[in-house]
């Protein structure tokens, strides 16, 4: 199994990479934008051949560079790349909005375009990592929430267009996950304890909670799932 994970060296992306390695991936292409140290630690930790790709997915040329590095047909593609302005929606400046949308959403469409031949040849299973913020209001998450909503729309359209080619596309909407992004929210003064108390299952999510669902979606067990967004949040969105 050849797998590509954009945003695959930290947080949920890293947990997904570790799951894919345990599923028998023979090579992982892991994209990242910053934090070389974490990227190299991840590459060392997954114990299968890894090619790290440092690229700015907010930029068309950066996406093209990423695509050019993938040299095999792809069996699994996970889009976990996310970057954005954590602030109230109306405080987000135009350049910050553009970068957030380009990294979180546009890059998924551009990567699907660029990798289409390899995805079709590998009859790939594709999963995009979204979040509850696409459909629910989270503090300081307006721009990223909008970008994740766009990402989920891309999942549905791509699923429809690629299914006849043998490529399955689905998404996961993660609740509050203990991750680098959550640390940013905490630093912004967001009280995550409230979410923990409200969550019926009584805890925040872990990156591997999401990765396990990704494992299911890329497995044959999810053969009949197409264009769906699976919510993984311990029940938080039920309230």
């Amino acid at each position: 199994m050849i797998a590509v994970v954009a945003g695959g060296t930290r947080g949920i992306g890293r947990a997904v990479a570790e799951r894919l390695a345990r599923m028998g991936a023979t090579k992982l292409y892991l994209g990242y934008a910053q934090n070389d140290e974490a990227a190299h630690a991840c590459a060392k930790g997954v114990r299968v051949p890894v090619e790290l790709i440092r690229a700015n997915l907010g930029d068309e040329a950066g996406v093209a560079d990423f695509v050019s590095r993938v040299q095999e047909d792809v069996n699994v593609f996970v889009h976990a790349a996310a970057l954005g302005a954590f602030k109230p929606l109306l405080d987000v400046k135009a350049n910050q909005w553009d970068l957030t949308m380009n990294v979180c959403a546009r890059s998924f469409q551009l990567l699907l375009r660029g990798l289409k031949g390899r995805l079709c040849a590998g009859r790939a299973r594709v999963v995009a990592i979204s979040s509850l913020g696409a459909a629910h209001v989270l503090p300081s998450y307006g721009a990223i929430g909008a970008a994740k909503a766009a990402l989920e729309a891309i999942v549905r359209y791509a699923a429809s267009e690629l299914a006849p080619e043998g490529v399955r596309v689905n998404g996961v909407a993660a609740g509050l996950i203990e991750s680098p992004a959550l640390e940013i929210l905490k630093a912004k003064g967001v009280d995550v304890e409230v979410a923990r108390k409200l969550t019926p299952m009584g805890r925040l999510g872990r990156a591997d909670d999401v990765a396990r669902v990704v494992e299911f979606l890329v497995s044959d067990l999810a053969e009949w799932m197409c264009g769906q967004i699976v919510v993984v949040d311990g029940g938080l969105s039920l309230l």
Binding site: Q34, N56, G58, D59, G62, A85, K93, Q96, L99
Partner: peptide, 15 residues
């Protein structure tokens, strides 16, 4: 400028 602006600037300088 905010941290996200500096990150974007870094990407642009690198390019």
């Amino acid at each position: 400028a905010e941290s996200i602006d500096l990150l974007e600037l870094r990407f642009m300088l690198e390019k």
